[in-house]
């Protein structure tokens, strides 16, 4: 145990040293120059990027969670297998191909990027919603039913609170991947930080590349932390404590 901890600690230290060295190198060579030389352009791209992620992400959340809830109702359970497989298939197609296909239908622009990313964000949330609701103990549901809770009350008071941890994990995964994939929006004229990244790649220009890539990474980390914060606020305390005690016991 202590050996593992030492290894984990060393890796952490090395990681932070690498990051510090990386940033020293960046600032020494003025590689983020575009961020502070063209602040309005930077803010424009950043806003576009955030809008793409925000819209596609929220539509995905608003679709996947209700879909997951419907598919776990007894009446619709037989469709679960089919739908999850369809969405799974969507996930297997490379993101670039999805974007290309959608561009073929909707033309170029931010709209196509949003639709593509929406499709891509569905699966992790849908899967985790279904898994979270399935993980609720049958006996607990039986007790809830036997005490006279209506199906809707069981969903709100028992199933969703207990699935919330898993659902949030899905949202987090989905949004973080979404932030990264949104860089591809540039390829179909959707804008975003991908514009600088791809310009950098095409011109072999590290300054352009990193002016796009570094803020993108920071954005992904921010989204991750934000989700963690929301998770802390929304997931019921009892579930959080139960998860913690399980992890600690292992």
């Amino acid at each position: 145990m202590s050996k593992n901890k030492t290894i984990a600690f060393t890796v952490k230290i090395l990681f932070w040293i690498a990051i510090i060295v990386f940033f020293i190198w960046i600032f020494k060579n003025d590689l983020l120059i575009h961020v502070y030389q063209e602040p309005s352009r930077f803010l424009n791209l950043l806003t576009q990027h955030i809008i793409i992620v925000l819209i596609s992400g929220s539509i995905a959340i608003l679709t996947a969670i209700p879909l997951g809830i419907i598919l776990t109702r007894t009446k619709f359970r037989k469709w679960e297998w089919l739908l999850v497989n369809i969405v799974n298939l969507g996930q297997t197609i490379p993101s670039l191909a999805v974007l290309a296909l959608i561009m073929g239908i909707l033309g170029i622009g931010m709209k196509s990027a949003i639709v593509g990313l929406f499709l891509f964000s569905l699966l992790p949330i849908l899967q985790n919603t279904i898994a979270g609701i399935h993980s609720v103990d049958e006996k607990t549901l039986d007790a809830a039913k036997g005490m006279g809770l209506t199906p809707l009350q069981i969903l709100w008071k028992v199933e969703l609170p207990q699935a919330s941890y898993s659902i949030f994990a899905g949202i987090r995964t989905s949004l973080v991947i979404n932030v990264g994939t949104a860089a591809l929006a540039y390829l179909i004229g959707g804008g975003g930080l991908g514009v600088w990244i791809f310009t950098g790649i095409q011109l072999f220009d590290n300054a352009f590349l990193l002016s796009g890539a570094v803020p993108l990474t920071i954005l992904a980390l921010l989204v991750d932390y934000l989700c963690k914060g929301l998770e802390f606020l929304i997931v019921p305390k009892g579930i959080r404590l139960a998860k913690q005690s399980v992890t600690n016991n292992n």
Binding site: D137, K139, A143, A144, K145, M147, G148, K157, V158, P161
Partner: peptide, 23 residues
């Protein structure tokens, strides 16, 4: 009415079936 009737009957099961999300 099923729901109303169940509320008038105490129900205890083997694995207690407590709700982990509630105090």
């Amino acid at each position: 009415n099923k729901i109303e009737m169940r509320r008038k009957m105490g129900y205890v099961i083997q694995s207690n079936g407590l709700f982990p999300n509630m105090t």
